[in-house]
Nucleic acid binder design. Structure first.
Lengths: 143, 143
DNA sequence: TAAATATAGTTGATAAAGTCAACTATTTTT
DNA sequence: AAAAATAGTTGACTTTATCAACTATATTTA
């Protein structure tokens, strides 16, 4: 019965919402909001994103994004360069300062996960991440 | 190296944040907010919760919760009864209307997951939920 | 190719969500 | 019995998010 699977997934979703909440607490103590961190992440890993691209990936409101980018620019975390291909669009990239800031956040996030792992031995971690990869693999197929 | 595991988990977290976002879109189209739905869920599954209990489970601000409960009461979704054991505390329970409303939401959430599952065969679903349960089991140990 | 339509991004007005501290009424601790 | 702690409410405020209107440029289509 498929309903059983549905219940299992929903149970997991509630559980994992708690885990994600736990891991996000430290970020909320930083000077960045969660969506801000996600934007920085995208820019760190892929230079010359456009705002549109970020909207598509993160499903964030374009008005909200625009304002956050203005804030980032004011703080000199990002640079905006108008695209020569499409003059409506703006190419976004982290500045050195932006990169440095992100790396601090990133380090803190790693530490946070590390903390979570501290009572798990190597075998458990191997299994844990194996299960995660499998879920990712299975669910990626449904796009 | 433990750093590998950390990266794997963080990759999964980003991925699964997207899945949860996808599944929550329909809820955000309902007349309830996400935390409101989570509260209704708790009350549906455990009668005579106190507000404190819900705060501990959902890590929600008590001011915010208090207001949401007022809203629920106005809409006759919940009933509040002052505890006789502890007269500061209030016991919360869903009314018939609250139960009915929750069941509608719950049905919609099930349908949403069902939709996600529609391209996955039974074997994949068995595996998927197996991995989820294992993750839940491993991570539950770190409390 | 000119007109209509669509898209990228910005801005203003608002609404919804979340935070924080002060406060009342109890209960528990010392 | 006084002091400290807890449950819940309320008010003031900040942060996030939503939505529509708008400018500038690109793309489509008649």
């Amino acid at each position: 019965m498929i309903g059983k699977y549905v219940n299992d997934m929903r149970s997991f979703n509630r559980f994992y919402t708690g885990i994600l909440g736990l891991l996000n607490t430290h970020i909320l103590e930083s000077r960045f909001s969660l969506p801000e961190v996600r934007i920085l992440y995208e820019l760190y890993h892929n230079n010359n994103h456009t705002a549109r691209h970020i909207i598509d990936i993160l499903h964030i409101d374009k008005g909200l994004l625009s304002r956050m980018l203005v804030k980032f620019e004011k703080e000199k975390l990002i640079a905006k360069i108008r695209s020569s291909d499409d003059k409506r669009a703006v190419l976004l990239s982290l500045t050195k300062k932006g990169i440095a800031e992100f790396e601090i956040l990133n380090k803190a996030s790693n530490d946070q996960v590390m903390q979570l792992f501290k009572n798990l031995d190597d075998q458990k971690l191997t299994r844990l991440t194996h299960h995660m990869k499998e879920i990712q693999r299975i669910l990626s197929a449904i796009k």
